[in-house]
Design a protein around this nucleic acid. Structure first.
Length: 260
DNA sequence: ATGGTCGGCAACCGA
């Protein structure tokens, strides 16, 4: 594949319009090849693509009113862009697939699930099943594929601030951990865990509890996962907490992977 | 300490 080194990032921005200054400043400082964003909360006509063009990035995005919305922001040409999953038109603002620099990137905003007893949680579990089918039908584990985004699942006890108290939460439920693990068994490696075994490293801190960021009571629910050809070439993966210190931060912060 | 804050959008829903 024709690159020397590629920097890939994922960031749940919780409104691309409100977070635009933070995202633009972060891109200018870090210069990733690709940034995958979730929860843009903007209809396509309202996506601020000119701000990214001005700093040398091109965009592919699909949003809707009020909720959801995904985008790929790239320094390189974005090819073969598709949104949604087969037979699920309502999920177009939750999944973007594209080819960039010879790699397939899949950016997902997985349904949160509300409560474990709700129909929405069943829908979330089924969503992982549909993703699994999609990977089986369209790709091979030997292909260079990155699956990234807000997956709304903390995979392991070390990925939440209090695994005993949070057991059964829709983002840390045995069934949802199993659902993610089953998709990953198709052929994905968790790039962050490959490089950082330490607990207490999170990408999300709930706004609703005032000092949870300061106390580092968070969740690692944003991920960059790669098939073997890319995982073998990944030389670094880290969480950048700096955007949380800016004015009006998102409740999430970026995760970054470097692939040689 | 079983708390409370955002964003979108115009009364509440979703996270």
């Amino acid at each position: 594949m024709g690159w020397s080194s590629v920097k890939i990032a994922s960031f749940n921005v919780n409104s691309i319009r409100v977070r635009l200054p933070i995202v633009v400043a972060w891109l200018q400082k870090n210069r990733p090849d690709v940034l995958a964003v979730q929860e843009t909360k903007a209809q396509d006509g309202d996506f601020p693509q000119e701000a990214f063009h001005e700093i040398g990035y091109t965009c592919a995005f699909r949003g809707q009113k009020t909720y959801n919305g995904v985008a790929l922001i790239s320094r390189h040409e974005i090819e073969h862009v598709e949104f949604g999953l087969p037979d699920e038109p309502r999920d177009e603002p939750r999944i973007a697939t594209a080819t960039i620099q010879g790699m397939t990137l899949i950016n997902t905003y997985v349904p949160q699930g509300y409560l474990a007893t709700s129909e929405r949680f069943r829908y979330k579990l089924d969503w992982f099943g549909r993703l699994h089918k999609y990977f089986c039908a369209c790709f091979r584990p030997s292909d260079p594929v990155l699956w990234m985004g807000d997956l709304n699942v903390a995979p392991l006890p070390i990925d939440v601030y209090d695994p005993l108290a949070l057991e059964g939460h829709v983002c840390y439920h045995p069934a949802v951990r199993r659902a993610l693990a089953e998709v990953m068994e198709w052929g994905f490696t968790d790039l962050f865990r490959k490089h950082c075994p330490e607990p207490g490293q999170y990408t999300f801190w709930d706004y609703r509890i005032g000092n949870f960021f300061e106390k580092n009571r968070g969740w690692r629910i944003d991920h960059i996962l790669a098939t073997a050809p890319l995982a073998d070439r990944c030389i670094a993966c880290y969480i950048d907490k700096e955007p949380r210190a800016a004015d009006r931060p998102s409740d999430h912060t970026p995760i970054v992977a470097v692939i040689e």
